[in-house]
Design a protein around this nucleic acid. Structure first.
Lengths: 190, 190, 190, 190
DNA sequence: GATGAATGAGTCTTCATTCAT
DNA sequence: AATGAATGAAGACTCATTCAT
């Protein structure tokens, strides 16, 4: 992210820059998606990355692929979170809320390209990490027995969208309210 | 809707056609919004309505105003639903799900123009009808005491978005799953 | 002008309203031309006059004809000014500056339609009243002998344009500066 | 100008063509502004230059910037004229009259964007070159002592406008008449 | 004659995508 | 493989003009 300060036009450094450019593009895309959503112009991302438009297309022929690359990073984080011995779904929700805009952009991307292999791969990772948390939640009695991975997946998507769509000033309040509704629904009743 | 078969360019039928055109535009917009969302090109709506672009702008200078007009119809329906003596939140949810795409478009519109009076007016109607159902729900013990109008409003928004974004074939399943999660959250716990 | 307050939509009063509408249109046009110049949309004038667009076209098929009608009023004033026994060119300039925007709009119209009879008629009236002032100026020794009507006509046009084009806050200063340059040129030297 | 024959759609010649396109756009703009004034459609300029609309916008995001580029060339000429050891204001007026249409377009542009830095820069150059001629004029006794740069600037603007607005066939006569009025005003009176 | 809606062409502007270097 | 300019197709919006009532 340090590299991605906008407007710093790079020289043509040839093939050597390939890996570096890729990183810069992903970082720039994450920023742009956070600010403007998935519908942001492609050119803005290239500009922010300080990379030619052509290079953007070479690395990521479609916006979906770029979104996948961005979210691949994010999901690394999520997996990291989920791997902690005492991690709960709440921790996952915390992360999702913190990255709401990017998450929402990803939800958009998924909606637009459910059939792209890379998208499915990411979906699988997501389901899998959710699965682990669900299992643990059930084990500790923090989660109702009839709540499955797919339910949580849906909740994550709704949470991301809702928070992302709220005006900046109300994000926190909306997140709290939504999570409250969800939690009560997810908690075992008794 | 009967009149709005696309592509049939109308003659200038004079001012008498004004009201009819307005209706055609609203109907066309509802269709288009349902198919393409709020971001659909204005021109597509005019075309679908069989009306010149200028007429569209005359009737609805901004997309928000058009969205409001569309939703004003929908909210009529919702109010009708809510007025039934034994109406429940579930009935409301049924309607929202049935009109998911349009509802989602409206959520977008509201997000984009919270400060437009017409939007606020609609928002107020929505809150008000939800309020009635909430009160009734509490009275009949179908709703937890700590669930308020704003919570339900949020749920409606999430429900609409989620169902609207799901691929056509999965809408019903998604709706069922989402409502299940929500319901358990909204039901009083014993 | 009292009648022309914008937005007051009139009922269809039929033919009886003809003369009145004509007046309202002229007054509205003067206002609009003053505010936005000759390029102002036709519709703005009809709206300001509280008259249907169709009526505007009926009375004034072209913008030129409307401009002529507007200026015909103004030239009445100018002729009135010029008829005063002790009137000077400076009095004319005062009037032109005071009506700079409208005058400039008229200059535009003339430039665009030198061959329209109505325009020529107005031009003749203008030349004629200037002629009177020139003669008187020469007689009183206030004007150089080699300055003719056409020179003054040109000066009037330039004065109007210049003042009209200046930002509102600088009109007076510009008018003063321009008149100073012109005056020294027009005054006899010796 | 040789390259700018209208309608010959070019291939994408890559970045190498950038400078050439820029030139073509400026030349085309000068022509178009001369023919139709500053209000000419942007698309006409792109077409005349044989360049895509997008390229026009890339090079000149606003019409003002394009006008500035056009006039920057013209002012080069004017500065060249003014630098001649024996140059007079009359030489400047000659140039202004010769480029009347473009000059008038520039006056429009300045009026429309007094606050744009590039415009101010050009204005400063103009004032400065006028200043040199004013100083020289005073020194040689060809100019009245109380005539300053601003007066001459105003005269230039009026001259440009007036000549530009005159029908082609009368330009010369109008220029002569206007300059005569101005000159007598600018000359020292004995 | 008046009315005011309808029409559609014309401009502006933004992007996704391609391509020469 | 990188660059960044070129392209042109949309889409938004505004008006001049026409026309049924």
């Amino acid at each position: 992210m340090a590299e991605s300060s906008e407007g710093v036009s790079r020289r043509n450094r040839g093939p050597a820059a390939a890996a570096e450019n890729r990183r810069a593009l992903i970082d720039a895309a994450r920023e742009i998606f956070s600010e403007q959503g998935l519908a942001a112009p492609f050119s803005a991302i290239a500009r922010r990355a300080g990379v030619g438009q052509g290079s953007l297309y070479r690395h990521f022929p479609t916006k979906i692929e770029l979104a996948v690359a961005v979210f691949e990073d994010n999901i690394d984080d999520l997996e990291h979170v989920a791997r902690a011995a005492d991690a709960t779904l709440d921790d996952l929700f915390d992360s999702v809320v913190a990255q709401a805009k990017v998450s929402a952009a990803f939800v958009d991307a998924v909606a637009a390209a459910r059939d792209v292999p890379a998208v499915q791969r990411i979906g699988a990772r997501m389901i899998s990490l959710i699965g682990a948390l669900v299992d643990r939640g059930r084990a500790t009695g923090a989660l109702a027995d009839d709540i499955g991975r797919d339910d949580v997946m849906l909740v994550v998507a709704m949470l991301a969208r809702t928070v992302a769509d709220a005006p900046a000033g109300e994000r926190e309040a909306v997140a709290r309210r939504a999570r409250s509704v969800f939690s009560l629904g997810l908690m075992p009743r008794g």
